[in-house]
Amino acid sequence: MSGFVEPIVGRYVHVEIDGEINRIYFEENGTGIPLVCLHTAGSDARQWRHLLVDEEFTKRFRIIAFDMPWHGKSNPPDSQYGDEYRLTTATYTATIRAFCNALRLDRPVVMGCSIGGRIVLNLAISHASEFRALIGLEAADFQQPWYDTAWLNRPDVHGGELCAALVSGLISPNGPVVARDETLWGYKQGGPGIFKGDLYFYRVDGDLRGRVGQIDVRECPLYLLTGEYDFSCTPEDTLRTAASIPGAKATIMERLGHFPMSENPAQFRAYIAPVLQDIVSRQNT
């Protein structure tokens, strides 16, 4: 309907990360338990727009999605223009914690997808007491590379087209066409070298093999959900990871791939609803 205004509100918050103020763009809707959502590598927080307007979830949760520095409407830090962007485990962790502190969120739930799912595991290892629950979508301690990231940022190949074409295969083939197109559009809009820089964390710096066994879900519940069509972080990768974390809950989602929240929001809703209900129930007991 023409004229309909969505209830999502977008604002900027100034966040000090690694000694420098970053102007971070975030969108939010709802009231209740803070739920911070992390986008995938090379994209931005628009991936969460369907969750942000869910009438049921926003009655219980203050859902917040932010663009990582260098992504979407969050610019690079002033001092780093011209530098090669490389996301590290330390900076990624610091960014999430600083963002939550800047908004004074009280033990938020953090839900991340892909690189966001990987960093959620690191939060569970190192900072579990700061969070109410952690949700990793398409998350594993490690996964096998399937292409050379050198292709992602070179002058003779269109980075946006290539990034989108690569990840197109990670989307379930039987989802809504418009949602697929919108998911890929986010990849076509990424800055030069940003997807590649995010994958430095994913492939090189953020290998958590041998460390996830330290996670204690009694301190902070951990939920892992992976789409059956994700051949990057495969269901086997997630199940292997979950098997080494006593008490972690793993679910394989049918008819979904690597971008569940944006590639097929209705199908994803069916899987995330019980997780969010479980978190609410724990809150009430």
Partner: peptide, 8 residues
């Protein structure tokens, strides 16, 4: 799944 993409 796993047979749906050239790079898969």
């Amino acid at each position: 799944p796993g047979w749906h993409d050239l790079l898969a």
